Computed example of a mutant assay.
Amino acid sequence: MSSNKFLIIEDDTIISATIKVTLEKNNIVVVGIAKNFENAMTLINSTKPDVCLIDIQLKGKFDGIDLAKELDKIKIPYFYLTAQTDPLTLNEVHKTNPLGYLVKPFTSKGLWSSISVVWQKYLNEKEKIFTIKSDGYIYKIPENDILFLEAFDNYCYVHSENKKILVPHTLKKVKSQLQSNHFFSPHRSYYVNTKKITDIGQTTIHLNSISISLSKAKRPELLKIIENNS
């Protein structure tokens, strides 16, 4: 983990210093500390961090959630640094995709334990590559980039971040080849990456603008999975 670069975005000097010392004691490279949205974006562009630690309640025009939305766009993972927040803030938080939450106040030992377990799990998942053949081509797709699988007669569509590939195998066959455990069948025709779900309705789920059917019988199970992973 020592080759990974961390950026801290926290406007409390004491807290940011504590985090920096904790990370460096564990051989993590801290590329900088930002105190607001603008400073953070400048450092992100110049240092290219592997992961960010973001205080949700940054002071200024733009808060930590605004920054998180920008990181989601450019696919830089992040943790939230947070104390108790109001329902309106939590509603906005649920529209983003953090790796996890680091709850203030925290001890140095507790902080590192929370970060290291989740970050190592993320790195392990990132390394899982899904290899498929279609129309004479071989595609290698990181499993984290797969949005969902969709049944199409005896074939299956693989929907990723930037591709839609028709595979000459059934949905059952294709999903059995995935190594990751964060996929779920909300309906018999779909197999969805739960990390990409942005909204859960009564009969549908959303992956941003994509709507997928959700069986009423499967809804409680999905809600429990999302809750356990939040």
Rank of each mutant, 00 (worst) to 15 (best):
L7H: 09
I8R: 12
I8E: 05
E10I: 04
D11N: 14
D11L: 00
D11H: 09
D12W: 03
D12M: 04
D12K: 07
T13V: 12
T13A: 14
T13D: 05
I14N: 13
I14Q: 10
I14W: 07
I15Y: 13
I15M: 15
I15R: 12
I15G: 10
S16M: 02
S16H: 11
S16E: 04
S16G: 03
S16Q: 08
T18R: 13
I19K: 11
I19L: 15
K20V: 01
K20T: 12
V21Q: 13
T22F: 08
T22N: 07
T22Q: 03
T22E: 09
L23D: 10
L23F: 15
L23T: 07
L23W: 13
L23G: 12
E24F: 07
E24D: 07
E24T: 10
K25W: 11
K25G: 07
N26M: 10
N26G: 00
N27E: 14
N27C: 02
I28F: 15
I28Q: 13
I28G: 00
I28E: 02
I28R: 10
V29Y: 03
V30L: 14
V31M: 02
V31H: 08
V31T: 13
V31G: 08
I33P: 03
I33E: 11
I33Q: 07
A34I: 01
A34Y: 13
A34K: 04
A34G: 10
K35N: 02
N36G: 10
N36D: 15
F37M: 01
F37C: 03
E38L: 00
N39S: 12
A40C: 01
M41C: 14
M41V: 03
T42F: 12
L43Q: 14
L43K: 09
L43D: 10
I44M: 02
I44N: 06
I44V: 14
N45E: 15
N45W: 01
N45K: 15
S46W: 00
K48M: 03
K48A: 14
P49M: 09
P49R: 07
D50L: 04
D50Q: 01
V51P: 08
C52Y: 04
C52A: 14
C52G: 11
C52R: 06
I54P: 03
I54C: 09
D55P: 06
D55N: 15
D55M: 05
D55R: 08
I56V: 15
L58M: 08
L58Q: 06
G60E: 08
K61C: 02
K61G: 01
F62T: 00
F62N: 10
D63A: 03
G64C: 03
G64L: 11
I65D: 01
I65F: 09
I65L: 12
D66T: 04
D66W: 06
L67I: 02
L67Q: 06
L67H: 05
K69I: 04
K69E: 14
K69W: 04
E70Y: 05
E70W: 00
E70K: 13
L71N: 07
